[in-house]
């Protein structure tokens, strides 16, 4: 006997079976690939952190290089005191929306060949189309910037997306984040604009006004809570 393909019972059974099979296939794919994906995400994060101190390891050496260069990582609070936890596991995106004195602030300490210490701080904000984030590394004085790395999810290629290029990020070298124990955000300005008195500035990206403003706002919002940590004499 042939089924009536257009009966309600047939349709119901058919669609339920189809969805169950598809769901099982997807669940299987997700579970079996999860470990590899998480690994990729972690390696990508390490690569980004290293990029802020201008170290670009080969794809298969990221973890090894990260472990040898990043000598310690810890979390501080807005008062500059260390708190418990793994810096690497902190969700910076969630932290930046909290009030400054409730945030967990990750710090990565890198020891470059030759024993030079750099401090790496994460930042997270929004550009024109979506989130932007990055890592800023500071020299041993914890006041001047050594390097910066920025990334974005969907800024316009050729315009806002240029914030990832060395032409933009290299400008941050030697800009002062702390002057006279005061936090002085680095402004991102168009040609002809004047920075706030006492603040250092870099040139914005042509055609990427809103993304550039986003970078400035991100640096201000994400890094200002570190002021206590950056200005205390020792920790």
């Amino acid at each position: 006997m042939r089924f009536n393909k257009n009966s309600n019972v047939y349709i119901l059974i058919y669609i339920v079976a189809l969805v169950l099979v598809t769901g099982a296939a997807l669940a299987f794919t997700s579970v079996s690939l999860k470990e590899r994906q998480n690994e990729n995400v972690a390696v990508d994060k390490m690569r980004q952190i290293l990029a802020s101190i201008r170290i670009a390891p080969a794809d298969n050496e990221v973890t090894a290089v990260f472990d040898s260069i990043i000598t310690s990582q810890f979390i501080v609070n807005a008062s500059g005191e260390q708190v418990a936890g793994e810096a690497f596991d902190v969700d910076v995106a969630a932290q930046v929306s909290l009030p400054a004195d409730e945030r967990e602030l990750p710090v990565y300490v890198a020891t470059l060949p030759g024993g030079i210490t750099k401090y790496i701080l994460p930042a997270y904000g929004s550009g024109l189309w979506g989130p932007i984030w990055g890592y800023v590394s500071l020299n041993e004085d914890r006041a001047t910037i050594y390097g910066a790395y920025f990334a974005h999810q969907g800024e316009t290629p050729g315009l806002g997306a240029e914030i990832t290029k060395p032409q933009f990020t290299d400008q941050f070298e030697n800009k002062r984040l702390v002057q006279d124990n005061r936090f002085t955000p680095v402004s991102v300005l168009k040609k002809g604009q004047k920075p706030e008195p006492g603040c250092d500035f870099v040139d914005a990206v042509s055609g990427g006004t809103i993304t550039s403003r986003g970078v400035a706002a991100m640096l201000d919002n994400s890094l200002a809570p570190y002021t206590k940590f950056l200005t205390q004499s020792d920790n």
């Binding site: 393909k5 189809l18 296939a25």
Partner: peptide, 24 residues
Amino acid sequence: TIPNAIRIIVQLVVVAGLVIIVSE
């Protein structure tokens, strides 16, 4: 075997499943 009344839904489920697998 696809019932005519829900053929678009069936097609979408198959396509969506495959796309998610490719993306993963």
